[in-house]
Design a protein around this nucleic acid. Structure first.
Lengths: 167, 167
DNA sequence: TCTGAAAAGAGTGACAA
DNA sequence: TTGTCACTCTTTTCAGA
């Protein structure tokens, strides 16, 4: 990605409510130029949206756990993610290589709630669970380092226009 | 947490750039009342900040992995999180119960980069690694369900005021 | 803790370069 | 693709209830 776009994305991951005025100052462009770039980054899907970062402790969800799941009957169709999507305690669902099929990140208020959620996971998706409790979180969701490498969409060009292979 | 604050937090996790005007409409208060509530939620630490959500694929970080680590020599002081913090490929670091000491979430551009990062993790923190590659991510970082239970800070009271234990 | 109003500041779109 | 300008809307602060 190009340098200015990179610094825009970096700045917006650090503060998602930055005004275009402040952004423009940071990257050394006018407000409207920055505004257009942000719109393009949003359209390309580089910027997918904006969220508030919350304190899970303050929201009474102090207990985090990773739950690795495997189907009880591996011959059955595997639709665990959809079957589990209704559980609000599940923060994330990853399909993984290795011994397990999926790895879930779960946030609850208490051990008793974790027990209940594990039961709901097992019965909803017909899986066995192996749970790893998080004791503390030294850091989480750090902003990524954004490289200069072109993203796939950067290479796209309007239909009908000749590509560089023509040269 | 109280109902209006809950809907404010929910709305801001869904769209972190919502204007106070829109927020005020959603929760049925005036703009300045909503503004005050948001400021208070920020001061209490319920709202910790705002970020742009990015596409890791578009940022050329299509490969995600979980890396479980254990100290090579368990008798040495355990300062792995600080020793690893400089690696930008590490998104999150969780201290966990169970067989491993920490679980890292890592994002890289390619298998070769993963290999390099694993070597850097091993040498930086003097640990062994066990890596689980993520194949796909059905969902990630979903907004939490916000309960009515009081957050810890809600219970605090001005110093010198008698607590309920006095009764 | 809320409302309403006023001033300062930011977002937005058209147009020229 | 960027900058300028003009218009509109939002943010921010304050007094008063």
């Amino acid at each position: 990605m190009e340098e200015i776009d990179r610094s825009i994305v970096t700045a917006l991951t650090a503060d998602g409510r930055l005004s275009y005025t402040d952004l423009a100052e940071k990257v050394g462009l006018s407000v409207s130029a920055v505004h257009q770039r942000v719109r393009r980054l949003e359209q390309r899907g580089v910027l997918k949206g904006y969220t508030a970062r919350v304190s899970f402790e303050a929201l009474d969800l102090p207990l985090t756990a990773f739950v690795a799941i495997r189907p009880f009957d591996p011959s059955q169709p595997d639709d665990a993610p959809e079957r589990l999507a209704h559980l609000p305690e599940i923060d994330s669902c990853y399909s993984v290589a290795g011994d397990d099929f999926y790895l879930l990140l779960v946030r609850v208020a208490s051990p008793v709630d974790l027990e209940r959620v594990l039961q709901e996971i097992r019965t909803s998706a017909n899986v066995t669970t192996r749970t790893t409790v998080v004791l503390s979180t030294p850091y989480e969701s750090r902003p990524p380092r954004i490289s200069a490498a072109p993203s796939p969409r950067t290479r796209t060009r309007p239909a009908g226009e000749p590509g560089s292979t023509a040269g």
